[in-house]
Design a protein around this nucleic acid. Sequence first.
DNA 1: CAAAAACATTAATATAGATTAAGAAATTAT
DNA 2: ATAATTTCTTAATCTATATTAATGTTTTTG
Lengths: 194, 194
Amino acid sequence: MEVYDLILKNIAKHISLDESEQSYFCSLLTSKQLVFKEFVLMEHQSCQYFYFVNRGALRAYFLNKEGKESTIMFALKDWWVTDMHAFVKGQPAMLNVVALEQSEILRISKTNFDLLLKELPKFEQFFRVIFQNAYIREQLRTIQNLSLTAAERYENFILKYPAVIQQVPQKQIASYLGITPEFLSLIRRRRTEK
Amino acid sequence: MEVYDLILKNIAKHISLDESEQSYFCSLLTSKQLVFKEFVLMEHQSCQYFYFVNRGALRAYFLNKEGKESTIMFALKDWWVTDMHAFVKGQPAMLNVVALEQSEILRISKTNFDLLLKELPKFEQFFRVIFQNAYIREQLRTIQNLSLTAAERYENFILKYPAVIQQVPQKQIASYLGITPEFLSLIRRRRTEK
DNA sequence: CAAAAACATTAATATAGATTAAGAAATTAT
DNA sequence: ATAATTTCTTAATCTATATTAATGTTTTTG
């Protein structure tokens, strides 16, 4: 079925499934349409699902006690996203996940996720690779947060996520970089002055 | 065999192995004694191994172009560590990994790692969980780097890694927190003044 | 055990980035 | 379309953290 094309291609990058495995896997998913600014997950709630972005884009962010947002992740089409700690450990979510535009997600519940891994152990390999890559990405981000200036982090961001630059307001990029929108504005001015 | 006790217990936390699986797994490892300050991995080298700390402690750090160190990870006894990007993608290492004291490591080569996953697919599950936890930890670190002050990050560090506080020089803790040793010194003074 | 090296502290000064505030521009909703 | 809301920019001021440098302390090594 059309709606599962993208996710099946995503999986086929790492493991191969026969027809019946494909339909079993798809039977464990539910799809959901989101309007602009609709929340997929809110902090303090339980996080029951692992989400796949089928169309559109999501943003995961943390809100600190003063109300300042820190963007943890932009999830574009073909990305997996959730509050992994909350999902895995059954803890209340720390993150908010919200639609950046009209979007479509596919989601698998924790119960079905556990079932999938049991019934089709190939998916252990699939998610091993997904988490391995997620770990590598986060570790690289830590390295850059610790060793680069804000202007350097912005240059890297442009190179790594050119699609995001188009789609999202600058204040959200600033919150991903860990700086204020005002300072990002200054960085951008200095950048074009050269 | 005695030397494999700890790593087998580490694995038993997530999957169970029978006698023959245990000995097969152990046959893929090599052990190595390290003296204080001995390098396990140096940047620009190829990273052939995934390391398990059997005794002692290691530190993984990044050296930027001005020569400033950023500590990416302290790996105490019972931890897995490597430059995961370099290990998985066969790229030159970005990280240096060095012994913080006299240590013993067990290591598995990339070739044997791939073989292990093929021969004993249970290990897909084991490493799925390992990487899932590693991802969760790194994501939490990103959240804290973006949303907390240096003094708050230090408090969290003390709570989370009390063993490290004892074992390593403050300048290395400062480099983990992303601040200078001088500023950590100030944070500590303010802290005891209260 | 002594000399050398590495580490920690303090203090003065410097700077990257934050805050505040106001107006301009863009986007969204009526 | 137009009003309302959100976002972006600019500039002045402020603050958390860096830098430099000197001194004292601990750890390592010959």
